[in-house]
Nucleic acid binder design. Structure first.
Lengths: 247, 247
DNA sequence: CAGTGGTCTAGACCACCGA
DNA sequence: CGGTGGTCTAGACCACTGC
């Protein structure tokens, strides 16, 4: 016991600090090499074993280390390259950045429209209720990467009514998080494949009839209600989208 | 202190037991209704607050409850329906079952082939090394759902040499986990959209040129090496694949 | 057997919320 | 202010591994 806290309040959570330091340590190790034991690490960093374990669990989660019961923790043999990961919600520009491209935007369209039946069902509102739509084309460098169309729920518009200073560069998710921190909980994305129609083909610079990835995402608020829906199309050529998942 | 353990060793981890009991409790609540506080729950279940928190975190993770700092834990307003979720690694038949269909198999082909350059690179082996391939067509009820082709690494074949009692019904992942528990750590899946070629179109019962989802998955072992690779094609019509992800 | 990671506990302090 | 969830600690016991 005697749970003395650190002299300063811990803004960046302790485990993530430790994880950072462990990442540095990992750079000095060969793949397959063993790390010090949890007890040793906890003494070295001056934190409890639980905190070290949290840090190691995070590193294990994204494949940086490998842990085996009676043996130890080892630097992973081959780290899976995580280009654009679907494991966490990320604003689209951030996704493009993680893929190694410079994000850009074209054809931004904002409008206020009544919800059609499909959207209303997804958002849990009445058809015809007024919604804000945002449509844009994200670029990866010079190349069009993602065509995306958001529909914002009335609830979201009530909470964040002023979209005057919205910039596509931070993305819709980024904007919401900045104006209403803690509002978004998670998202549910459905994936499908479609053929490019004329109106998608032009902006995305692909042939009509080319195969496109379609993502239909529902943004869920902390109270469990739908905050927004978006439908995006991409050729997949520029965003190499990955999912990393545990057994 | 005084960390008295339960009278019996805890095979199913305590938090998951608690999570199950909490799920029962949730059924008696209305959406939005508050759960008892963590302290109360920990006393009720006779476990520590940390254990209750682990259970609640799990429920929160799949969207069953919503937690707000100074306020409490609430039953989620609308639970996201999780058909076939890509959040964890699952054998394909299990995925089909979760979508509400009865899984079946057709056209099982096993062969031993030298690795082509592409596969060798993915598996981290030399081109031409001998690999086992498994190719099959999974059915969702009467309808063809997923065409999938596995390539097993030599390392996996050394560890699990006997595939005589492999049944497609349990899936390749299921078979590996049964024969070599703890061997698989996670997987990395890359998603793309393609047009059905003649050879895919026939078994999947779609038109040539129809849009198909293509999943390229690399199975990673606990030591970080690649255990298998698979490429699967599906029309997406029968497997409504979802990803749930946190902010 | 000693050392490792895996699990759980009891308790402390913190930050946040509503009355 | 009291109650809530969020964080971290110190320490116990367990299960697994290799010597």
């Amino acid at each position: 016991m005697m749970a003395k806290q650190a002299p300063f309040p811990h803004r960046p959570a302790r485990p993530s600090i430790i994880a950072g330091q462990l990442t540095e340590l990992l750079k000095t190790l060969q793949p397959g090499e063993r790390l010090p034991g949890e007890l040793t690490l906890s003494q070295q960093f001056g934190v409890s074993r639980n905190t070290v374990r949290d840090a190691l669990a995070a590193l294990q989660h994204d494949g940086a280390v490998v842990r085996q019961h009676g043996q130890g923790t080892f630097k992973a043999a081959a780290r899976v390259p995580l280009h654009a990961s679907l494991n966490r919600m990320l604003p689209v520009p951030e996704l493009i950045r993680q893929s190694g491209y410079t994000p850009g935007v074209q054809n931004l369209i904002l409008a206020t429209e009544p919800a059609d039946e499909d959207t209303a069902l997804a958002l849990g509102i009445e058809p015809g209720q007024s919604t804000r739509t945002i449509e844009m084309l994200y670029m990866a460098g010079e190349q069009p990467a993602v065509q995306i169309r958001y529909t914002l729920s009335p609830a979201l518009l009530r909470a964040v009514p002023d979209w005057a200073d919205f910039t596509p560069q931070e993305g819709v998710l980024g904007f919401i998080v900045r104006h209403w921190p803690g509002a978004v909980s998670h998202s549910s994305t459905q994936i499908s494949a479609v053929l490019a129609t004329q109106e998608m083909a032009r902006p995305l610079n692909v042939a009509v009839g080319a195969p496109l990835l379609r993502f239909m995402t529902l943004g869920i608020g902390i109270d469990g209600t739908a905050l927004y829906r978006n439908v995006s199309y991409q050729s997949g050529e520029f965003l190499d989208v990955h999912i990393l998942r545990p057994v």
